[in-house]
Computed example of a mutant assay.
Amino acid sequence: MSDAKWRSSTYSGGNNECLELAHGVPHFAPVRDSKRPTGPVIRFSRDAWRAFLAHLG
């Protein structure tokens, strides 16, 4: 995932206290804690991530 481009939500206010989502990773939606960029990454399938977002909205 070294080619991943990590982005945090615009709602986070730039205070580094949110989740980051990696773009450019085929088949997965990798998520990590912005406070621990070298820490663990949870990989969701694209379908699971879309279902999660749909549930929030």
Score class of each variant (00 low, 15 high):
Ser2Arg: 12
Ser2Cys: 08
Ser2Leu: 15
Asp3Ile: 07
Asp3Ala: 14
Ala4Leu: 10
Lys5Met: 11
Lys5Thr: 13
Lys5Tyr: 02
Trp6Arg: 08
Arg7Lys: 11
Ser8Ile: 14
Ser8Glu: 12
Ser9Thr: 09
Ser9Ala: 11
Ser9Gln: 09
Thr10Val: 12
Thr10His: 10
Tyr11Pro: 01
Gly13Ala: 07
Gly14Tyr: 07
Gly14Met: 09
Gly14Asp: 14
Gly14Ala: 10
Asn16Pro: 03
Asn16Leu: 10
Asn16Gln: 14
Glu17Asn: 15
Cys18Pro: 03
Cys18Met: 06
Leu19Lys: 03
Leu19Thr: 13
Leu19Gln: 08
Leu19Tyr: 08
Glu20Ile: 07
Glu20Pro: 00
Leu21Met: 10
Leu21Tyr: 06
Ala22Trp: 03
Gly24Arg: 09
Val25Thr: 09
Val25Asn: 03
Val25Gly: 02
Pro26Gln: 09
Pro26Ala: 15
Pro26Lys: 08
His27Ala: 14
His27Val: 14
Phe28Tyr: 11
Ala29Glu: 02
Ala29Trp: 02
Pro30Ala: 15
Pro30Trp: 06
Val31Gly: 08
Val31Pro: 02
Val31Glu: 08
Val31Phe: 04
Arg32Asn: 01
Ser34Gln: 06
Ser34Trp: 00
Ser34Ala: 12
Lys35Ala: 03
Lys35Asp: 02
Arg36Cys: 09
Arg36Thr: 05
Arg36Val: 05
Arg36Glu: 05
Arg36Lys: 04
Pro37Val: 06
Pro37Met: 04
Thr38Tyr: 03
Thr38Gln: 05
Gly39Trp: 01
Gly39Asp: 03
Gly39Lys: 00
Gly39Val: 03
Pro40Glu: 05
Pro40Leu: 01
Val41Thr: 09
Val41Asp: 02
Val41Asn: 05
Val41Met: 06
Val41Ala: 04
Ile42Pro: 01
Ile42Ala: 08
Ile42Arg: 06
Arg43Ser: 04
Phe44Val: 00
Ser45Phe: 11
Ser45Cys: 11
Ser45His: 10
Ser45Gln: 05
Ser45Leu: 11
Arg46Asp: 00
Arg46Lys: 08
Arg46Pro: 00
Arg46Gln: 05
Asp47Val: 15
Asp47Trp: 08
Asp47Glu: 12
Ala48Glu: 04
Ala48Cys: 05
Ala48His: 08
Ala48Trp: 07
Ala48Phe: 07
Ala48Leu: 04
Trp49Asn: 03
Trp49Gln: 03
Arg50Glu: 09
Arg50Lys: 14
Arg50Val: 13
Ala51Asn: 13
Ala51Lys: 14
Ala51Ile: 10
Phe52Pro: 01
Phe52Tyr: 14
Leu53Asn: 12
Leu53Thr: 13
Ala54Ser: 15
Leu56Val: 15
Leu56Met: 13
Gly57Val: 14
Gly57Ile: 13
